[in-house]
Design a protein around this nucleic acid. Sequence first.
DNA 1: CCGCGTTCTGCAAACGAGTGCAGCGTGACG
DNA 2: CGTCACGCTGCACTCGTTTGCAGAACGCGG
Lengths: 341, 341
Amino acid sequence: MPAVQTPTLRDVADAAGVHPATASRALNPATRGLVNAETARRVIKVAEGLGYRPNPIARGLKTAKSSTVGLVIPDLTNPLFPPIVRGIEDVLEPAGYSGLIVNTDNDLQREQAQIELLRSRQVEGLIVATAMIEHPLMERLHREGVPMVMVNRRPEGLDVPSITPDDASGIEMAVAHLAALGHRRIAHLAGPSTTSTGLARLRAFRNAVRDRDLDADPALVVTCERWSEAAGAAALRGLLDSGTELTAVVAGNDLIALGCYDVFAERAIECPREVSVVGFNDMPFLDKLAPPLTTLAIPHQQIGAEAARLLLDAIAEPDRPARSVMLPLSLIVRGSTAALA
Amino acid sequence: MPAVQTPTLRDVADAAGVHPATASRALNPATRGLVNAETARRVIKVAEGLGYRPNPIARGLKTAKSSTVGLVIPDLTNPLFPPIVRGIEDVLEPAGYSGLIVNTDNDLQREQAQIELLRSRQVEGLIVATAMIEHPLMERLHREGVPMVMVNRRPEGLDVPSITPDDASGIEMAVAHLAALGHRRIAHLAGPSTTSTGLARLRAFRNAVRDRDLDADPALVVTCERWSEAAGAAALRGLLDSGTELTAVVAGNDLIALGCYDVFAERAIECPREVSVVGFNDMPFLDKLAPPLTTLAIPHQQIGAEAARLLLDAIAEPDRPARSVMLPLSLIVRGSTAALA
DNA sequence: CCGCGTTCTGCAAACGAGTGCAGCGTGACG
DNA sequence: CGTCACGCTGCACTCGTTTGCAGAACGCGG
């Protein structure tokens, strides 16, 4: 037990010779105007002298505010998320908020439980980065007035602010890049169809291929079970085993692209000489791969920061209409794509 | 504003026809024995029916416990940490605890501020993964009785539980491996000398080199300013520019090793033909690099889990003497190390 | 039948801060 | 000199839960 009990508002009040209520008002900038400037100054000084820190728990009980928001992500271990989280915390912190992180492992059951947990901890809002298409839970929360913003997915039919990279034009850039290199039979290893991102990118891919008059062979599109290396590898194996010809692949994300690398190694396929690959997300260290992966860079940190700002806005003014942001991304050309021989 | 106010203990009590105090006792397993089994069952049932969730804030106010612990890490963006954090949360969650994460960016100033923030949020304990050697702050906290455990560093002179990988034998394995491949002039790019990990590995390196009668040229040891790619690259450049001969390098960690890769690319040095490299930590995706990096794998998740268990113990029994754990690590041999020609 | 012990339940006071309301004193104005 | 307004401060209650204590109900032995 700490020898020095942290001083309470009452201690400050006593030391300053005022009533706790007065001390409370003096210390709170919003109500400071109610007390005599001189008194306020004295109280503040005493508070500083004592090293007084308001107890956020007590404050939270009264005000029903916790100065905490929940961050719902699939898996912190996925390199996509840490930078986003950093971005979020960087704007939360100066605002006096903290983020409580939970991992859902993309499991609906778990997601529900975790969000329940967050709510019981009285979070004031939610930043949701899990991209399941089905969102009965989200709908309910939204109806109940829980402020939230979605990251990386657009909430179709839900009036919720969201912040997403411009998936469509990203895929468009990837396909354009490959087409310019002479590729005509481009495969797409799509992300899970249960995720909005997976679907959005798939649609964009189909459009891009059509617009450019490339081979639109349906066999060239395979959907992965998960956003993972293993799933990407499995998908590519299936594609190759089916005898489908292809000279390039647009992967749903970087992890799926990494799965392709595994298959290339297994089957002694040379990348990019035989097959070009482009990923999505620009995870860290992709430039160190063999070959360095061409990919689409999304401004992770910025996404996080923007999401946090949107959420703080939503908390401050719950009735403001949802404002959504779409961030541009850029194609990072590296060694995994090359002109067709 | 939520249409459905979440039910309070009072609501449950009313619905069950008992006093809130009784409901409280019935719902709390520790005090359940005090109430009639039948009554308890009824209360519990009603609580479930209403979807009652105890308000941890109110509870925290009364009990001065927040069911929250602070996780102090240098930078979530460093791939070393997410798995550790997962490990931590995996054991915190079933225990009803949550972790509040802060990033210090290895800045003492910032660390202090962040820990202050955690304390003001009434965390019950701290898991500290920042490895600065200087720890006046830690000492103070420890004296004040804040339960804490250290991860990845041994708190010299501080009676605090810690959980660390066996740095010494790891480095020993790396050097042994290189020696077996015929290397005699092995360089060490040490981590910052302000970190305990950096020092421990450096010492271990010196010992290993001496024990094996390898070239113990002091010029072969360079200390990096930071645990980063850039610092690693700078260190290696300095080493090469000084004209020091070397055929292998033991990097302080994987990021530093990655910095070496950058320098190899700049100067057209072939790895592993000309220079072998071994890293430390086994970050994700190292197997995809060119060449795949030989490194020391530490059981990240397990470290986190163990740390969390230690902390919960310390919280439950503050007076129990500090118990420290050292986890074994294993050498993962990949393509970045080869026999001397 | 009394007294005592058990077992259970209710009462009320906390925990630390926020806040509507009343009341104090002062100064100004009629 | 009385009245009123205004600026400031204090009182007391509240948030949801826990917990020491009192007391009710009951059984049982003496």
